[in-house]
Structure formats: C-alpha cells, structure tokens
Design a protein around this nucleic acid. Structure first.
Lengths: 342, 342
DNA sequence: CTGAAAGCGCTAACAA
DNA sequence: TTGTTAGCGCTTTCAG
C-alpha cells in the first residue's frame, strides 16, 4: 500500500555512516548505552530527519514481542464495555502498547478462533472479559504459559489475576436499600449461572436476604439465560406467570433491569409504584430512563486501567505471582426504587 | 510467551519430506495449484496433525500484507459505533481479515499517532469514522495511496469512497413530521460545523423549512461544539436564554437530543407537552427514555458492512474507481413529538 | 564501542 | 512439479 517508501533502518544507518546494527542499538533505549553517545545522537538525529519509523512487524519477528495485547470482549454493544476499553487503552498507550479488540458474541467457538488469531499475531498477553465458570480454553492457555488477566468475571478453580467488582458488596447495598424502603419480598433475576458474576451476585443476594431477615423463598430467585434485556424480560415474565408475589427486583445487571421495564409496560405495572427495580453497573444514560434506574455504580474505566496495569506487570515479570483486585462499589439511588405500595 | 513452541513451516516441510517452499505452496490456496495434488494433500494433513498455524507476521514481512485493516473511531462510548463495528467485523471475518480498532477521542493528534501506528503495523487499509470537513491528514494519506473508506462522515473536496446516511432525507423526514403535527417554529441544534453530517443536516434543515413554508429565522439554528449531550444542552440553553420562541427541536443527533432532555428537566419544560424533540441515529435504548425519543433510524450495522465490503474491494483492486453509497433512512416516531400546545 | 553475520518464518523469483 | 536461493526489516550473538 505504501507508495512512499518509508525509510528503513538501513537507510538511517547509511545516512549516518554506521552499520545497521549500530543504528539499531542507538535507536533502542535499552541498548543505547552500548554505543558512543555522539554516534547515538547522530543516528537519532538522522532517524528524525528521515522520518524513520521502526517496523514493529520486523522487530516482532525477531523478538517474538509485538507491543500488542488482545482484548477479548463478549459483546461490544453492551455499553458497559466501552468504558473498560477506554481505561485499558489509556494505560496501554502510555506504555507504548496497543490493544487488539475482538468480540466473541458469547460464542465459545468464536472466542477460540479469535484468541488463536491473536496469538498468531504475537500478542503478548490477553485481557479477558468473557470468562465462564467452566472454561477449558482458559485452563489450556494458562498451561501454555499465556499471560492474561480477567476483567469483570473469572473462571472457577484457576488461579488467574483478575479485576472484578465486589459483587457481594454491590448486591448487599441493593438489598439493604430495598429493605430500608420497607420491601420484604424481593426477587433476584440472576445472571447466567455459568458466570462468576451471576453466581456470586445470587449467593450474595441469598446472604443479604438472610442477614436482613427478609422473606426467604426459593421462588424469588431465577436465573437469566443471558446478560440481556430479552433474557431479563423472559425471566420476569416467568415469575409473574407463576403468580409469585413480590414488590421489588434486584436485577443481575442493568440490561436485565431494562428487560423488566419492558415487562412492566406489557403488563401495565408501574415502576416504582407497583414494583421497584435495582440494576447493576450504572451503564450510560440510565439517568434518562423512565423511570431513572437505581443501580450499583461500577468504576468501569478504573477496572480497565487496573487490568491493563496488571497485565503489563505480568508481561514485564512473568514470575510475579498472580494478583487479584476487587473494586469497591456504591449504590446510585434514582427513581426506580420507592417504598412498596401499602 | 509461547512455552509450547508452535510448529513452523519448516517443521511441516520436514515432517512431510518436502522443501519449505513446497509446503508453503501447498498450504496457500492461491498457489496450491502449482503443486502435485497428492503432495498437497499430504502436506496439509501433516500441517493439520502438527497443529501448524502460519505466522502472519512473518508472512506480512514478506508480502507487505497483514490481513488487517484499521478502524478509526472518534469515540467508542458513543453507542452508535458498536453496531457499525459489528457490521464491519462480520464482513472482515468472512474474508479472513481482522480489524484493529482505535479511538481518537476526537483529538486530531491522537488520530495522527494512531494512524501512524496502524500503518507501521502494515494495515492494508482504513475505515475512518472521524472525518472532518477540513482534514489534511486524509488528504495526505490519499496522496500516499493509502486505501480507505469513510463511514458516516466525509471530508470536503476529497474524492474518497464513503458510506453515509442520507442526511438530507433524514432531516427532511423529521421536519415534515413536525410540520404535520402543526409546528411552525422549529429549532435545529446542528452538529459541529467542521463535520459533513453537521453541515449537511443543517443545510437540509434550512431547505426543508423553506420547502414546507415554515418560519425561517436564523435565530432558530445553532451549532453545537461537539456531538455530545453537554454540547446539546449548552446550545439549547443559549437558545432559551436568548428568548427564542419555538415549539420543537430537530437535534443533530441523539446525544444532542439527550442534552435537550437535561435542559427540559432543569427548566421545568415538558416534552412533548411544551416542546417536541427529534433525534438522529436511533441508538440503543432510546425507546426506554422518558419520553421515548422520536428519531431517524440509521442502519448502522449495514453501514459498517458496506464500508468493509468497499474497502476489501479497493484492496483487491486498487485501480477500481471510488464508489460512495448513501443509505436510506426512516423516521421512528416515539413519544417525544406531539402537536404544539395550543 | 562498532562491524560482520546470521536468522526470526515465510514467500517469491528462478532454476531444474 | 519441485527445490534453491534470497530476502522482507530488524535484533543479536560474536568478533574485532
């Protein structure tokens, strides 16, 4: 594609009157010390004026380093991910890395293929947002010594570094808020039970209900098949059709909560008049919904940044032990929660 | 990172008892014809069992082709882009390409740096969603023979392939809808006037107002500094503070419309009771707003897919003349528009 | 401190 | 049809 041939290391070396090897050393901060300071300066200057840009591909071929990391997302159209991506990129960029984003659409096959492609492109590590509790692929990657850090969710039984929200605290906050408003029969529409966030939040829900002395009825908990509006709507419809009695819903995440909104409209239920709802994530634009959604606020950008930092550390020093971070959460009270009707 | 050394072409060749060059030919669909069918089969089988994966980096070094294209976005957190990305990836993937996504945050400097990085990574072309009317960088790239296609917006005076919504039709639809409801004094909060979408929509607005015989007052049009809620809010506040009289707003896009919602809340205005609003793009979740936003629906995924197709065509045959596509739009009438108060 | 030489994994002439 | 030979642009021994 070029047309204008970008100058190569040889060109710089020739112009500076040195051997390419010397030019290489002069241009690389790591090896610059090995070369005469004056020569180094001269080479750098020539490189500058020639507009020399090292070819990372050629470099990668030699060093097996590419300056890239892979970013594996389940679904880019879920608004919670862009802020994570942003946080990641801010850190990577500062470190001279770039992230290659792939979308799996929650399909393990696509995931496998994408990860393979990325590996063949020599990514130096992965940030993975698609973890499932059972995740053989991750296990395999770990065995093969691939560097990676999990964001948001994590697999079970694998000791992998991860940055996740403190799900238990988030749910506890939600349930307590509803209890304080006077709700006694609270539904939990859990996320898929093959994800850590799904089960951790469901477990936290049960604990909170018990600790706060609320009504404890298995019929009040259902799992959604996906983290989506449709799945949330379906789960709530099932609950309603079964005649379950409740005055509030703790949704596994914001999209599931939005699914509830759809069902409220279908069934002529008022929110928060007839039923209150709490979401999870605080994705954008929630404040403009009808009604504005009360939700658990998650520092997505910070999650991303932290994950990137961890990964870069691991790449720099693979022997360093895996570290995991739980990020603190807060509840954002908006208009979707109110005391139950008397 | 590897740990398990992935087998190289040499390994395959050795195992199959042929020369690496033969193995290469056998493995590449394009050159497979040059090799004995039996040998080819054998090589492929060996490659299969060895788990051989070609190294695209090494290949790229030789061929100056990388199988990647660069995707330049102004802001990934704007919900209109993920669907475009999805459309692009669907096509690229099918063609064995992958897209490298970068975010410029509307910063020309970041844009320049990112594009340079991508070029050094040998992307074969670009899909660019950051075009400004005046865009020296694009001009330079075009001069240098870089393949690219514009999505959504385009620069002025450069003959570059583009896939854009039919802005004029979209605005015309909006204004006509409002006129039919009985509105006579309609405000347009235009997008930034350094973008083609901003000015094209503003021009279309003026034309529609004239054609429909509505009130034509320069005070009814303002430009927003960005495609954002904040900028939209600011523009509307200015309008209100100036005492401009109007009953409806045609917003440059959905985010600007959302900014209007904020101002309505601040100033105690009812929508659509006191003032109607129409957006542009039909980004996700608009149906759940208070009130649901009437907007122009844009086939984002199709835009992305079409752009990817165009780019792949151009890469395959650079001599082919630049083609541009205007995609048709429809109006999605929701709850933010109603007849003006009497 | 610098140059020479080799090679990362692959493909593309050119010969045979 | 296959093998030989180079070489993509860079880094990295190893000598000097």
């Amino acid at each position: 594609m070029p047309a204008v041939q970008t100058p190569t290391l040889r060109d710089v070396a020739d112009a500076a009157g040195v051997h390419p090897a010397t030019a290489s050393r002069a241009l690389n901060p790591g090896t610059r010390g090995l070369v005469n300071a004056d020569t180094a300066r001269r080479v750098m200057k020539v490189a500058e004026t020639l507009g020399y840009r090292p070819n990372p591909i050629a470099r990668g071929l030699k060093t097996a380093k590419s300056g890239t990391i892979g970013l594996v997302l389940p679904d880019l159209t879920n608004p919670m991910f862009p802020p994570i991506v942003r946080g990641i990129e801010a850190i990577l960029e500062a470190a001279g890395y770039s992230g290659l984003i792939v979308n799996t659409d929650n399909d393990p096959h696509r995931e496998r293929v994408h990860i393979e492609t990325l590996r063949s492109r020599q990514v130096e590590g992965f940030i993975i947002a698609t973890a499932r509790l059972e995740h053989p692929l991750l296990e395999q990657l770990q065995r093969e010594g691939v560097q990676m850090v999990m964001v948001n969710r994590r697999p079970e039984g694998l000791d992998l570094p991860s940055i996740t929200p403190d799900d238990a605290v988030g749910v506890e906050l939600s349930v307590r808020h509803l209890a304080e408003l006077g709700h006694r029969r609270i539904v939990h529409l859990a996320g898929p039970d093959n994800t850590s966030t799904g089960v951790a939040r469901a477990r936290a829900f049960r604990n909170a209900v018990r600790d706060l002395g609320l009504e404890h009825d298995p019929a009040l908990v259902a799992s959604c098949s996906h983290w989506s509006e449709e799945a949330g709507a379906e789960a709530l419809r099932g609950m309603l059709d079964a005649g379950t009695d409740f005055t509030a819903v703790v949704a596994g995440n914001d999209l599931i909560a939005l699914g509830c909104y759809d069902v409220f409209a279908e069934r002529g239920l008022q929110c928060p008049g007839d039923v209150s709802v709490v979401g999870f994530n605080d994705m954008p634009f929630l404040d403009k919904l009808r009604p504005p959604l009360t939700t658990v606020s998650v520092p997505h950008q910070q999650i991303g940044a932290e994950a990137a930092r961890l990964l870069l550390e691991a790449i720099a020093d693979p022997s360093r032990p895996a570290r995991s971070v739980l990020l603190p959460l807060t509840l954002k009270v908006r208009g979707s929660t109110a005391p139950p009707a008397a």
